[in-house]
């Protein structure tokens, strides 16, 4: 039941252990990017443009002669920062909305449900594009757009959890002791509802990184010279026949990161034994 044993169970499975190590490496690389990157991410050297991978530039250089490895390491910062920040915002707002809707019910619940169902019927990418069209491109608007795009998912999940837990006898017992709504929500309902929401957030972070890369690919995300995996792939399309590594390596970085996150999330679901609770949504 307690957290430590769930984490230990997770790390004992090959899937959990491998994904945890890969994720660990990516996170460390992102945090320590300025220290471990062999070159600066914005240093151009046009004489070395489109160099294939070599001893000096392990992953080659791009069309401006910038070191690809350094840019990918710095790009991890953008991807992780956007993924984690936007999903955290989305999760906190979604939990507040979903818990309030599920607990208080009534007209507020109906209003929230209608809006959530409406936004659920749009693909996330479309929602994000509409928001960026309104806010203008950039890192901050990417984060806001992604947060809003995933809000419905967390609201729905939290609402379903709270509704299911609300009828537990211990909630009635708490009310019989004289507790108000705040106590019931924050001491009983949310602590019991939070685990599946956090796991869903973990999995959504992978999706958010893909969405960020997609927006970056369209030039709507982080603006140059800030390195972003999506934007790097986009610039690589022009050189795909003369320097394919420019598009291949950022693509691999995205794939490895997202696969690691998904495997880790999946292993977490099994370790916490909550697959059933997630499917109820």
């Amino acid at each position: 039941m307690d957290k430590d044993s769930a984490l230990m169970r997770l790390l004992r499975t090959p899937r959990g252990a491998i994904s945890a190590v890969v994720l660990g490496v990516i996170v460390i690389a992102a945090v320590l990017a300025p220290v471990i990157a062999p070159y600066g991410y914005a240093i151009q050297n046009l004489r070395l443009a489109n160099m294939e991978p070599s001893a000096a530039h392990w992953l080659g250089t791009d069309e401006f002669g910038r070191d690809l490895l350094s840019r990918i390491i710095h790009g991890a910062r953008t991807s992780l920062a956007v993924g984690v920040t936007s999903i955290t915002i989305s999760m906190v707002c979604g939990m507040a909305l979903g818990a309030a809707a599920g607990y208080f019910g009534g007209a507020f619940d109906r209003a929230v449900t209608v809006v959530v169902d409406l936004s659920w019927s749009f693909p996330e990418i479309l929602l994000a594009l509409i928001l960026i069209a309104i806010l203008g491109p950039g890192l901050a608007s990417t984060m806001i757009a992604i947060s809003v795009a995933y809000l419905a998912q967390f609201t729905r999940l939290t609402r379903a959890q709270v509704m299911a837990l609300k009828s537990e006898t211990y909630i009635e017992a708490t009310i019989a002791m004289g507790a108000g709504s705040g106590h019931v929500l924050f001491r009983h309902l949310l602590p019991n509802a939070i685990t599946p929401v956090i796991v869903a957030g973990m999995l959504a972070t992978g999706d958010a990184i893909i969405l960020e890369a997609t927006l970056g690919f369209f030039g709507l995300g982080a603006q140059p010279p800030t390195p972003s995996w999506g934007a790097m792939m986009s610039s690589g399309t022009a050189q795909i026949f003369i320097a394919p590594w420019i598009i291949i390596f950022p693509g691999l970085a995205i794939a490895i990161t997202v696969i690691a996150i998904n495997l880790f999330g999946d292993a977490l679901i099994d370790a916490l034994d909550i697959r059933k609770r997630l499917r109820e949504n």
Partner: peptide
């Protein structure tokens, strides 16, 4: 006060027995 029918769901699964017993004091 009230004693409930189902002793399996009348205690919060995340609370230790001591926490559950102290909850009425905390609420009041």
């Amino acid at each position: 006060q009230m004693v409930f029918q189902d002793p399996y769901s009348s205690l919060d699964p995340r609370y230790t027995i001591a926490d559950s017993l102290l909850e009425p004091f905390a609420i009041q």
